[in-house]
Design a protein around this nucleic acid. Sequence first.
DNA 1: CCCAAATTATTGCATTTGCAACTATTGTCA
DNA 2: TGACAATAGTTGCAAATGCAATAATTTGGG
Lengths: 150, 150
Amino acid sequence: MYKLTDSVPYLLNRAGVRIAEVFAQRIAEDNLSVAMYRVLAMLKERRESTLGDLADVVSVEISTLSRLVGTLAKRKLVSRTRPEDNGRIVIVRLTPQGEALTERLMPLAVELERTAVQDMSDEEVAALKKALRRMHSNLPAISGKGKVAN
Amino acid sequence: MYKLTDSVPYLLNRAGVRIAEVFAQRIAEDNLSVAMYRVLAMLKERRESTLGDLADVVSVEISTLSRLVGTLAKRKLVSRTRPEDNGRIVIVRLTPQGEALTERLMPLAVELERTAVQDMSDEEVAALKKALRRMHSNLPAISGKGKVAN
DNA sequence: CCCAAATTATTGCATTTGCAACTATTGTCA
DNA sequence: TGACAATAGTTGCAAATGCAATAATTTGGG
Protein backbone atom coordinates (compact mmCIF):
# COMPACT_ATOMS: atom_id res chain seq x y z
CA MET A 1 0.00 0.00 0.00
CA TYR A 2 1.30 3.37 -1.06
CA LYS A 3 2.20 6.00 1.49
CA LEU A 4 3.78 9.25 0.38
CA THR A 5 5.94 9.50 3.46
CA ASP A 6 7.32 6.04 2.89
CA SER A 7 8.05 6.49 -0.79
CA VAL A 8 11.54 6.75 -2.18
CA PRO A 9 11.04 9.99 -4.14
CA TYR A 10 9.70 11.70 -1.07
CA LEU A 11 12.44 10.49 1.25
CA LEU A 12 15.04 11.34 -1.35
CA ASN A 13 13.78 14.88 -1.69
CA ARG A 14 13.49 15.37 2.03
CA ALA A 15 17.04 14.26 2.73
CA GLY A 16 18.40 16.16 -0.24
CA VAL A 17 16.68 19.40 0.67
CA ARG A 18 17.87 19.25 4.24
CA ILE A 19 21.46 18.48 3.45
CA ALA A 20 21.48 21.25 0.86
CA GLU A 21 19.99 23.70 3.34
CA VAL A 22 22.68 22.97 5.88
CA PHE A 23 25.45 23.31 3.36
CA ALA A 24 23.92 26.46 1.89
CA GLN A 25 24.00 28.03 5.31
CA ARG A 26 27.66 27.18 5.76
CA ILE A 27 28.77 28.72 2.50
CA ALA A 28 26.41 31.68 2.63
CA GLU A 29 29.09 33.89 4.16
CA ASP A 30 31.08 33.47 0.95
CA ASN A 31 28.01 34.45 -1.06
CA LEU A 32 27.90 31.07 -2.74
CA SER A 33 24.93 28.87 -3.52
CA VAL A 34 25.12 25.10 -3.49
CA ALA A 35 25.02 25.04 -7.29
CA MET A 36 27.93 27.48 -7.38
CA TYR A 37 29.91 25.30 -5.04
CA ARG A 38 29.25 22.30 -7.25
CA VAL A 39 30.51 24.15 -10.28
CA LEU A 40 33.70 25.04 -8.46
CA ALA A 41 34.18 21.56 -7.06
CA MET A 42 33.55 20.05 -10.46
CA LEU A 43 36.15 22.26 -12.07
CA LYS A 44 38.60 21.34 -9.34
CA GLU A 45 37.98 17.73 -10.24
CA ARG A 46 38.11 18.04 -14.02
CA ARG A 47 40.24 21.13 -14.51
CA GLU A 48 37.95 22.45 -17.26
CA SER A 49 34.51 21.93 -18.66
CA THR A 50 31.97 23.32 -21.09
CA LEU A 51 28.73 24.86 -19.92
CA GLY A 52 26.69 21.96 -21.15
CA ASP A 53 28.79 19.42 -19.30
CA LEU A 54 28.61 21.48 -16.15
CA ALA A 55 24.84 21.70 -16.47
CA ASP A 56 24.61 17.92 -16.68
CA VAL A 57 26.82 17.45 -13.68
CA VAL A 58 25.16 20.06 -11.51
CA SER A 59 21.62 19.09 -12.56
CA VAL A 60 20.46 22.56 -13.47
CA GLU A 61 19.21 24.16 -16.69
CA ILE A 62 21.90 25.43 -18.96
CA SER A 63 20.34 28.89 -18.97
CA THR A 64 20.56 29.02 -15.20
CA LEU A 65 24.11 27.80 -15.39
CA SER A 66 25.03 30.39 -17.97
CA ARG A 67 24.06 33.16 -15.60
CA LEU A 68 25.56 31.44 -12.61
CA VAL A 69 28.91 31.06 -14.34
CA GLY A 70 28.64 34.68 -15.39
CA THR A 71 28.39 35.65 -11.76
CA LEU A 72 31.35 33.48 -10.82
CA ALA A 73 33.34 35.02 -13.65
CA LYS A 74 32.50 38.53 -12.46
CA ARG A 75 33.91 37.54 -9.10
CA LYS A 76 37.05 36.22 -10.78
CA LEU A 77 36.48 32.72 -9.47
CA VAL A 78 36.31 31.17 -12.93
CA SER A 79 37.37 32.14 -16.44
CA ARG A 80 35.41 31.70 -19.65
CA THR A 81 37.07 31.28 -23.02
CA ARG A 82 35.85 30.41 -26.48
CA PRO A 83 38.50 28.22 -28.11
CA GLU A 84 39.74 29.30 -31.54
CA ASP A 85 39.08 25.88 -33.01
CA ASN A 86 35.47 25.86 -31.83
CA GLY A 87 33.54 29.08 -31.56
CA ARG A 88 30.38 27.54 -30.23
CA ILE A 89 31.52 26.20 -26.93
CA VAL A 90 32.72 27.97 -23.83
CA ILE A 91 35.45 26.49 -21.70
CA VAL A 92 35.18 27.24 -18.02
CA ARG A 93 38.19 27.01 -15.72
CA LEU A 94 38.98 27.86 -12.13
CA THR A 95 41.09 30.91 -11.49
CA PRO A 96 43.71 30.69 -8.74
CA GLN A 97 41.32 32.52 -6.44
CA GLY A 98 38.55 30.14 -7.36
CA GLU A 99 40.80 27.22 -6.64
CA ALA A 100 41.82 28.64 -3.30
CA LEU A 101 38.22 29.20 -2.30
CA THR A 102 37.24 25.71 -3.40
CA GLU A 103 40.05 24.17 -1.38
CA ARG A 104 38.90 26.09 1.61
CA LEU A 105 35.29 24.92 1.25
CA MET A 106 35.82 21.26 0.44
CA PRO A 107 36.57 20.30 4.04
CA LEU A 108 33.16 21.69 4.97
CA ALA A 109 31.57 19.37 2.46
CA VAL A 110 33.52 16.44 3.82
CA GLU A 111 32.46 17.23 7.35
CA LEU A 112 28.84 17.65 6.35
CA GLU A 113 28.82 14.28 4.69
CA ARG A 114 30.39 12.70 7.76
CA THR A 115 27.67 14.21 9.90
CA ALA A 116 24.96 13.00 7.57
CA VAL A 117 26.15 9.39 7.54
CA GLN A 118 27.57 9.34 11.04
CA ASP A 119 25.84 6.21 12.23
CA MET A 120 26.29 4.21 9.06
CA SER A 121 29.02 1.71 8.29
CA ASP A 122 31.28 2.06 5.28
CA GLU A 123 29.36 -0.74 3.63
CA GLU A 124 26.06 0.99 4.23
CA VAL A 125 27.38 4.21 2.75
CA ALA A 126 28.72 2.36 -0.26
CA ALA A 127 25.37 0.66 -0.75
CA LEU A 128 23.62 4.00 -0.48
CA LYS A 129 25.81 5.54 -3.15
CA LYS A 130 25.27 2.57 -5.39
CA ALA A 131 21.52 2.84 -4.99
CA LEU A 132 21.58 6.55 -5.76
CA ARG A 133 23.58 5.97 -8.92
CA ARG A 134 21.29 3.18 -9.97
CA MET A 135 18.16 5.21 -9.58
CA HIS A 136 19.70 7.98 -11.62
CA SER A 137 20.55 5.65 -14.45
CA ASN A 138 17.22 3.85 -14.27
CA LEU A 139 15.38 7.03 -15.14
CA PRO A 140 15.42 8.88 -18.43
CA ALA A 141 17.01 12.29 -18.69
CA ILE A 142 14.45 14.94 -19.48
CA SER A 143 16.36 16.78 -22.17
CA GLY A 144 14.24 19.03 -24.34
CA LYS A 145 11.25 18.51 -22.14
CA GLY A 146 8.67 19.39 -24.74
CA LYS A 147 10.63 17.95 -27.63
CA VAL A 148 8.51 15.87 -29.95
CA ALA A 149 9.65 13.72 -32.82
CA ASN A 150 9.76 15.68 -36.07
CA MET B 1 40.08 11.78 -0.94
CA TYR B 2 37.10 13.98 -1.69
CA LYS B 3 35.44 13.93 -5.07
CA LEU B 4 32.28 15.90 -5.66
CA THR B 5 30.84 13.31 -7.98
CA ASP B 6 31.33 10.58 -5.41
CA SER B 7 29.87 12.52 -2.49
CA VAL B 8 26.55 11.67 -0.93
CA PRO B 9 25.01 15.17 -1.16
CA TYR B 10 25.79 15.35 -4.84
CA LEU B 11 24.47 11.88 -5.65
CA LEU B 12 21.41 12.55 -3.55
CA ASN B 13 20.63 15.74 -5.39
CA ARG B 14 21.23 14.21 -8.76
CA ALA B 15 18.90 11.29 -8.15
CA GLY B 16 16.31 13.49 -6.50
CA VAL B 17 16.27 16.04 -9.30
CA ARG B 18 15.93 13.42 -11.95
CA ILE B 19 13.15 11.50 -10.30
CA ALA B 20 11.31 14.75 -9.67
CA GLU B 21 11.72 15.81 -13.29
CA VAL B 22 10.23 12.58 -14.54
CA PHE B 23 7.30 12.78 -12.19
CA ALA B 24 6.77 16.46 -12.94
CA GLN B 25 6.44 15.61 -16.59
CA ARG B 26 3.86 12.95 -15.88
CA ILE B 27 1.60 15.19 -13.84
CA ALA B 28 2.11 18.30 -15.95
CA GLU B 29 -1.03 17.61 -17.95
CA ASP B 30 -3.02 18.06 -14.75
CA ASN B 31 -1.26 21.36 -14.13
CA LEU B 32 0.29 20.07 -10.93
CA SER B 33 3.79 20.51 -9.61
CA VAL B 34 5.54 17.86 -7.55
CA ALA B 35 5.04 19.93 -4.42
CA MET B 36 1.34 20.15 -5.16
CA TYR B 37 1.13 16.42 -5.59
CA ARG B 38 2.86 15.93 -2.26
CA VAL B 39 0.37 18.18 -0.55
CA LEU B 40 -2.50 16.19 -2.00
CA ALA B 41 -0.91 12.84 -1.19
CA MET B 42 -0.15 13.98 2.32
CA LEU B 43 -3.73 15.03 2.88
CA LYS B 44 -4.90 11.70 1.55
CA GLU B 45 -2.69 10.07 4.14
CA ARG B 46 -3.54 12.28 7.10
CA ARG B 47 -7.01 13.53 6.19
CA GLU B 48 -6.19 17.06 7.36
CA SER B 49 -3.25 19.20 8.25
CA THR B 50 -2.19 22.73 9.08
CA LEU B 51 -0.04 24.78 6.74
CA GLY B 52 2.97 24.52 8.98
CA ASP B 53 2.76 20.76 9.18
CA LEU B 54 2.39 20.53 5.43
CA ALA B 55 5.41 22.75 4.93
CA ASP B 56 7.48 20.43 7.12
CA VAL B 57 6.34 17.38 5.25
CA VAL B 58 6.76 18.81 1.79
CA SER B 59 10.08 20.52 2.59
CA VAL B 60 9.15 23.94 1.27
CA GLU B 61 8.91 27.37 2.86
CA ILE B 62 5.62 28.08 4.52
CA SER B 63 5.16 31.21 2.41
CA THR B 64 5.51 29.16 -0.74
CA LEU B 65 3.10 26.64 0.65
CA SER B 66 0.58 29.31 1.55
CA ARG B 67 0.37 30.40 -2.07
CA LEU B 68 0.48 26.86 -3.37
CA VAL B 69 -2.44 25.83 -1.18
CA GLY B 70 -4.22 28.96 -2.33
CA THR B 71 -3.91 27.77 -5.89
CA LEU B 72 -5.17 24.31 -4.99
CA ALA B 73 -8.08 25.87 -3.16
CA LYS B 74 -8.97 28.00 -6.17
CA ARG B 75 -9.13 24.79 -8.18
CA LYS B 76 -11.38 23.24 -5.53
CA LEU B 77 -8.90 20.47 -4.85
CA VAL B 78 -8.53 21.40 -1.18
CA SER B 79 -10.48 23.41 1.36
CA ARG B 80 -9.11 25.83 3.93
CA THR B 81 -10.83 26.53 7.22
CA ARG B 82 -9.93 28.42 10.36
CA PRO B 83 -11.34 26.49 13.30
CA GLU B 84 -13.46 28.45 15.78
CA ASP B 85 -11.41 27.24 18.70
CA ASN B 86 -8.14 28.43 17.15
CA GLY B 87 -8.11 31.41 14.86
CA ARG B 88 -4.44 31.27 14.08
CA ILE B 89 -4.20 28.01 12.24
CA VAL B 90 -5.64 26.94 8.94
CA ILE B 91 -6.85 23.41 8.43
CA VAL B 92 -6.39 22.07 4.94
CA ARG B 93 -8.45 19.16 3.67
CA LEU B 94 -8.99 17.39 0.39
CA THR B 95 -12.22 18.03 -1.43
CA PRO B 96 -13.89 15.06 -3.13
CA GLN B 97 -12.42 16.24 -6.43
CA GLY B 98 -9.01 16.55 -4.84
CA GLU B 99 -9.32 13.08 -3.48
CA ALA B 100 -10.36 11.68 -6.84
CA LEU B 101 -7.43 13.35 -8.56
CA THR B 102 -5.02 12.08 -5.95
CA GLU B 103 -6.28 8.55 -6.30
CA ARG B 104 -5.81 8.79 -10.00
CA LEU B 105 -2.21 10.03 -9.67
CA MET B 106 -0.93 7.75 -6.95
CA PRO B 107 -0.50 4.77 -9.28
CA LEU B 108 1.84 6.92 -11.36
CA ALA B 109 3.96 7.54 -8.30
CA VAL B 110 4.01 3.84 -7.52
CA GLU B 111 5.07 2.99 -11.03
CA LEU B 112 7.76 5.65 -11.03
CA GLU B 113 9.22 4.28 -7.84
CA ARG B 114 9.18 0.79 -9.27
CA THR B 115 11.09 2.00 -12.29
CA ALA B 116 13.62 3.82 -10.15
CA VAL B 117 14.43 0.83 -7.98
CA GLN B 118 13.80 -1.82 -10.60
CA ASP B 119 17.06 -3.70 -10.16
CA MET B 120 17.16 -3.56 -6.40
CA SER B 121 15.97 -6.19 -3.96
CA ASP B 122 13.40 -5.46 -1.30
CA GLU B 123 16.17 -5.49 1.26
CA GLU B 124 18.18 -2.98 -0.70
CA VAL B 125 15.21 -0.68 -1.02
CA ALA B 126 14.51 -0.97 2.68
CA ALA B 127 18.13 -0.16 3.45
CA LEU B 128 17.98 2.82 1.14
CA LYS B 129 14.91 4.21 2.86
CA LYS B 130 16.48 3.70 6.22
CA ALA B 131 19.60 5.54 5.13
CA LEU B 132 17.55 8.42 3.76
CA ARG B 133 15.63 8.74 7.01
CA ARG B 134 18.80 8.60 9.03
CA MET B 135 20.49 11.33 7.07
CA HIS B 136 17.46 13.51 7.51
CA SER B 137 17.44 13.05 11.23
CA ASN B 138 21.20 13.43 11.52
CA LEU B 139 21.03 16.96 10.23
CA PRO B 140 19.52 19.97 11.95
CA ALA B 141 16.41 21.61 10.58
CA ILE B 142 17.13 25.12 9.38
CA SER B 143 14.19 26.89 10.94
CA GLY B 144 14.54 30.65 11.07
CA LYS B 145 17.60 30.62 8.94
CA GLY B 146 18.90 34.01 9.96
CA LYS B 147 17.65 33.75 13.50
CA VAL B 148 20.17 34.87 16.09
CA ALA B 149 19.96 34.46 19.84
CA ASN B 150 18.33 37.48 21.48
C1' DC C 1 -6.20 39.55 34.69
C1' DC C 2 -3.26 41.73 31.52
C1' DC C 3 0.55 42.59 28.72
C1' DA C 4 4.58 40.73 26.51
C1' DA C 5 6.14 36.85 23.94
C1' DA C 6 5.16 33.17 20.93
C1' DT C 7 2.65 31.00 17.21
C1' DT C 8 0.57 30.83 12.62
C1' DA C 9 -0.35 32.39 8.29
C1' DT C 10 -0.24 36.00 4.57
C1' DT C 11 1.81 39.46 1.61
C1' DG C 12 5.54 42.59 -0.43
C1' DC C 13 9.64 42.47 -2.67
C1' DA C 14 13.70 41.02 -4.71
C1' DT C 15 16.09 36.98 -6.50
C1' DT C 16 16.21 32.75 -8.92
C1' DT C 17 14.59 29.64 -12.16
C1' DG C 18 13.08 27.53 -16.37
C1' DC C 19 11.20 27.65 -20.91
C1' DA C 20 11.24 29.69 -25.39
C1' DA C 21 13.21 32.46 -28.72
C1' DC C 22 17.30 33.96 -30.72
C1' DT C 23 22.28 34.18 -32.21
C1' DA C 24 26.31 32.10 -33.62
C1' DT C 25 28.98 28.41 -35.05
C1' DT C 26 29.83 23.76 -36.75
C1' DG C 27 28.48 19.44 -39.06
C1' DT C 28 26.36 16.86 -42.91
C1' DC C 29 24.91 15.17 -47.17
C1' DA C 30 23.23 15.61 -51.76
C1' DT D 1 30.16 23.34 -52.33
C1' DG D 2 26.04 25.03 -50.52
C1' DA D 3 22.23 25.00 -47.94
C1' DC D 4 19.91 22.69 -44.15
C1' DA D 5 20.23 20.51 -39.76
C1' DA D 6 22.36 20.17 -35.36
C1' DT D 7 24.91 21.99 -31.45
C1' DA D 8 26.10 25.52 -27.85
C1' DG D 9 25.23 29.37 -25.39
C1' DT D 10 22.75 33.79 -24.18
C1' DT D 11 18.82 36.56 -23.12
C1' DG D 12 13.74 37.97 -22.51
C1' DC D 13 10.02 37.08 -19.89
C1' DA D 14 6.97 35.12 -16.81
C1' DA D 15 6.40 32.04 -12.95
C1' DA D 16 8.12 30.33 -8.62
C1' DT D 17 10.74 30.88 -4.50
C1' DG D 18 12.53 32.59 -0.14
C1' DC D 19 13.18 36.10 3.25
C1' DA D 20 11.41 39.87 5.85
C1' DA D 21 7.75 42.45 7.50
C1' DT D 22 3.07 42.38 8.89
C1' DA D 23 -1.38 40.84 10.81
C1' DA D 24 -4.03 38.15 13.74
C1' DT D 25 -4.56 35.12 17.39
C1' DT D 26 -3.18 32.44 21.41
C1' DT D 27 -0.19 31.43 25.39
C1' DG D 28 2.25 32.33 29.54
C1' DG D 29 4.32 34.80 33.44
C1' DG D 30 3.95 38.18 37.00
